[in-house]
Design a protein around this nucleic acid. Structure first.
Lengths: 253, 253
DNA sequence: CGGCTGGTTGAGGCATCTCAAACGCAGTGG
DNA sequence: CCACTGCGTTTGAGATGCCTCAACCAGCCG
């Protein structure tokens, strides 16, 4: 069994699949900034600080608000009746949270802060009203949903077509790419997740994640920083991509 | 490697994950009928018949319209640069097609008819304008997107947590459940896909699909009809669910 | 009939899981 | 300062589920 590889959010070049796609008219960084400015202009937003481990919302909560990540890193987790959990997605600055509650007025999963962060709270009713007057806003929201679906699609693809090592590499590449699009440094990323969490996200066991990371480090595609094995150095993002492509090509003979 | 299990569309009870969710205020069948009535009332729709194998749109096409399935069965397929394909989702009557194009004005995957069918074509611009005046319509559209995301989430979960046999069972159960919600007979379904397509969708090889189906038939959970191995009899949908739960429980010791 | 496509089934191999042991690090309490 | 504990990580060895390769069968069509 495996899972979808990776798939963070808002990366401009789709990771595994590269269908012919028109070049974006704006960079992701610009898009995020414009979105936040637009929201701020059009809507009354409540800023809410969320501490590590704290939930923005939980499965079963009544859906009334959407959220936009303004700082920090968030995950959404499907919680099953038997207690098992499946991490579904990661959300960086500019990503929306809560779309999954719109269908039946109840959230279908938990949204958890992985670090201290801040979300902007937007009442759905207010958003609907505002969307009626501001087509820009509606289009921005639709774009965000569309992008979330594309991300899920890529995850599916990665889980279905990549080996364990390649999924881990793809995961790191997407993470770095998300940081890059937001103008942050990408040569050194701090995973705020345990191996078990990564494995859950990527559909593999924690041992397999650990081994994959060790192999990537042995091949000098990544490095571990002195302090702890949770900080990962990525000298060259392109090398990660090349690794993914290589193992992809290898698997097709 | 595998892929996300299953996940058809619009099933009321989520398949693998059963988070506490408030009971739907209306049945899925009612929702579909109401959606179609709403669209028909509010918007100028163009009806387009699509033949088996024909594309509603293809990756790279300019995004201008959304589509609602009115008859038939459709799949969306991610096409990679190297020619590999990954089936991403199945769409029955009442499901929308084309959300993936909203983000960057270009479709990111192909939407293909698996059978002769009909879609309603809705110009996105017209939809935006109409949404501004008809909040019902906007909410219906958001619900559909939200449901699509929930479906992807469930797929992810199934691919990540279910064995090959269970994924096939889950796939059949979701298919039957989709039919049931539309008031169609569920004791006998005709798969309009080859084993290879099913395997691609579920993230496994065609041989594994074939073996899984054989095992399910041996255990009397499904049956093959006389004519061809493509018609499958499902005497009891609940038995499929029980099988999934059983193998789920088995995998946790 | 012969070719082709799709399906089934078997045998063997390999990637990943499972189980297990050991290590590093942080916190706690003596 | 030093056990001592607990958690996260690494690494190894063995088990296994799924993939790969291959043969064969059934239906369809020229």
């Amino acid at each position: 069994m495996q899972i979808i590889a990776t798939t963070l959010t808002n990366r401009a070049p789709t990771p595994v699949c590269r269908a012919p796609i028109a070049p974006a008219l704006q960079t992701s960084g610009q898009r995020v900034a414009q979105l936040l400015a637009l929201i701020d202009k059009e809507l009354p937003v409540l800023r809410r600080v969320v501490h590590a481990g704290e939930a923005v919302y939980r499965a079963g909560d009544a859906f009334e608000c959407l959220y936009i990540v303004h700082a920090g890193l968030f995950k959404t987790v499907s919680v099953c009746a038997d207690g098992r959990e499946q991490m579904v997605s990661l959300h960086f600055k500019g990503d929306w949270l809560g779309f999954d509650g719109m269908a039946d007025s109840t959230f279908g999963c938990d949204a958890i802060a992985m670090d201290i962060g801040e979300v902007w709270v937007i009442r759905y009713q207010a958003l609907l009203e505002r969307c009626s007057r501001a087509p820009d806003l509606m289009v921005a929201m639709h774009s965000a949903m569309s992008r979330a679906m594309a991300r899920d699609r890529d995850s599916m693809l990665a889980v279905c077509t990549l080996s364990a090592d390649a999924r881990v590499a793809d995961f790191l590449r997407n993470w770095a790419s998300s940081l890059e699009q937001r103008g942050l440094r990408t040569d050194r990323i701090t995973l705020r997740m345990t191996r078990a969490e990564i494995g859950n996200f990527l559909g593999m066991t924690l041992e397999t994640v650990s081994r994959a990371l060790s192999r990537l480090a042995r091949d000098r595609i990544i490095g571990f920083s002195q302090k702890g094995r949770r900080d990962i150095e990525i000298p060259d993002i392109a090398a990660l991509g090349a690794f993914v492509d290589r193992s992809l090509a290898a698997s097709l003979h």
